[in-house]
Amino acid sequence: MRGDLAKAFELANTQVFRRATLSKSYTDLIGRKLFLAILTIRGLGAFALITLGVMLNKFSVARSVMQPRVRHEISRAGVALLPMFLFIALALGFLVIGQTVSALAKVGATNYLGSTMVIVIVRELGPLLTAVLVLARVGTANVIELGTARALGEVEALEALGIDPVHYLIVPRVIGMALGIFALTVYLIIGALGSGYLFAFLQDVPMGPGDYFKQIAEALNWLDFALLALKTVAFGFFIAIVTCYHGLAQPLRLEDVSRVAVRAVTQGVIVCVLVDAVFIVLYLVT
């Protein structure tokens, strides 16, 4: 267990470089940053593969312990965030969709309403906004919890008890975040589309609710549902990997935890954008 982790973390054991003296030139600085980025990507990749391996190999290990932990993480990354997401959905509907509907109605382009809503809300804004909000709310907590646990020696204590830290600490968070982001995205999209129409209705846009939802339903196809599910699960998986990697792998001292949390959130946003870009290409290709 420790050996597997050590191999992954060794790849990104960047402490040597971080301790190096300050760069004397911009080329030194860029070179060092580039080298650190490559090491981090390798470390993250190895950590993701290890986590996937543990998820598959230990699927049925210690179910009586793991099932409550998975349920807790689903609740934390999903159910507990529902009130906040309902508010965000209302705000998104009022601020973005309502105005779009009104603008399209003014220029007589309401025929494009369905496809506009699907592209803006279902494909892009809904999943990405959900991912970034969950990253900020739960991802940060992940880094701090795991970093503190690591700094206080809880990871060593798990290993001493023959418990795989990746199985006990990481797998529930990955599952919880993947399912949580998927469910929250669905709620956010439904809530935003509903409140968007409400806002447009208040502005006397000449369109019945039946026409509005019919247009959206016609603009959706099976690929949107399939890629939405895949995309949100991918967001959840990668956010969990980035935050858990930084929480578990890097900080060994309490004073490092806050610094690493900031780094993890920054990298989490970058990963979200990259995953989103991959799915845009998929939408364009299919």
Binding site: A62, E145, T148, A149, L152, E154, A157, L161, I163, Y168
Partner: peptide, 18 residues
């Protein structure tokens, strides 16, 4: 190095349950 999120009884029970 106890697990801070768990109670003392849960700490003691964890190895047995896992």
């Amino acid at each position: 190095n106890l697990f801070n999120q768990l109670t003392i009884a849960e700490n003691v029970a964890l190895p047995l349950r896992y």
